[in-house]
Simulated assay, not measured.
Amino acid sequence: METGSNEPKSRYRQYLEVVTGPLQDKRRWRQYKARVKELPENYRTAVEALERYLMTFGPGDSTEAASMYEDLADLFERSAADGTPIREIFGENPVEFVEAFAQNYSVGSWIGRERERLTSAIERAAGENTGKEERTV
């Protein structure tokens, strides 16, 4: 395993990352949280609501999730700087907004895998050839 600076990781760090996940992703998360903390209160409240939703339905891959949250911070920092009203960011349906936003980061998403699994099961049950090999679970 290599670190970003091409130095070998210590055995302790390798073990720690196996247990807790990549330390770089943790740094990215802390940086994201610091950025959100600096937002005006109404934007921060909106981001925190999105964050709660995305924790459940967002990507399961930590690197993909880190990118998604950084992009979320970018969006709200720009919106706050431009004075864009919250409702203008979200539109009339906040769920539609967050679903469209999250679709850009579907790698590792458990909900995406379950949707595919459901679709395949229904196709098999209906006798349709899905063109995929059947796996037993």
Rank of each mutant, 00 (worst) to 15 (best):
E2V: 11
E7K: 14
P8I: 11
R11H: 07
R11M: 09
Y12K: 06
Q14E: 10
L16R: 15
E17V: 13
V18L: 15
V19H: 03
V19G: 02
V19F: 07
T20Y: 14
T20K: 11
G21T: 09
P22A: 12
D25S: 05
D25H: 04
D25A: 06
D25Q: 06
R27G: 06
R27Y: 11
R28M: 08
W29L: 14
W29H: 14
R30G: 02
Q31A: 12
Q31T: 09
Y32V: 12
Y32P: 04
K33V: 06
A34H: 13
R35Y: 05
V36D: 01
K37V: 04
P40Q: 05
N42D: 15
Y43E: 03
Y43G: 03
R44I: 01
T45F: 11
A46F: 07
E48D: 09
A49Q: 10
E51H: 10
R52P: 02
Y53G: 02
Y53E: 07
L54S: 02
M55W: 13
T56D: 08
F57T: 03
F57E: 08
G58V: 01
G58N: 00
P59S: 15
D61K: 03
T63D: 15
E64D: 02
A65T: 01
A65I: 00
S67N: 15
S67E: 15
E70V: 05
D71P: 04
L72I: 01
L72S: 00
A73T: 01
D74H: 03
D74V: 00
F76E: 00
E77F: 01
S79K: 09
A81P: 07
T84Q: 07
T84H: 05
R87M: 06
E88H: 05
E88K: 03
E92W: 04
E92V: 05
P94L: 03
V95K: 13
E96R: 08
E96G: 07
V98Q: 09
E99I: 11
A100K: 13
F101M: 01
A102C: 04
Q103F: 07
Q103G: 04
Y105V: 00
Y105E: 01
S106H: 13
S109N: 03
S109V: 00
I111P: 04
G112I: 14
R113G: 15
R113Q: 15
R113A: 14
E114P: 00
E114L: 12
E114V: 06
R115M: 12
R115D: 06
E116L: 14
L118G: 01
L118E: 10
A121V: 04
I122M: 09
E123H: 14
A125R: 14
A126R: 12
G127C: 07
G127H: 04
G127V: 06
G127P: 04
T130F: 07
G131W: 02
K132N: 08
E133K: 12
E134I: 09
R135G: 07
T136I: 14
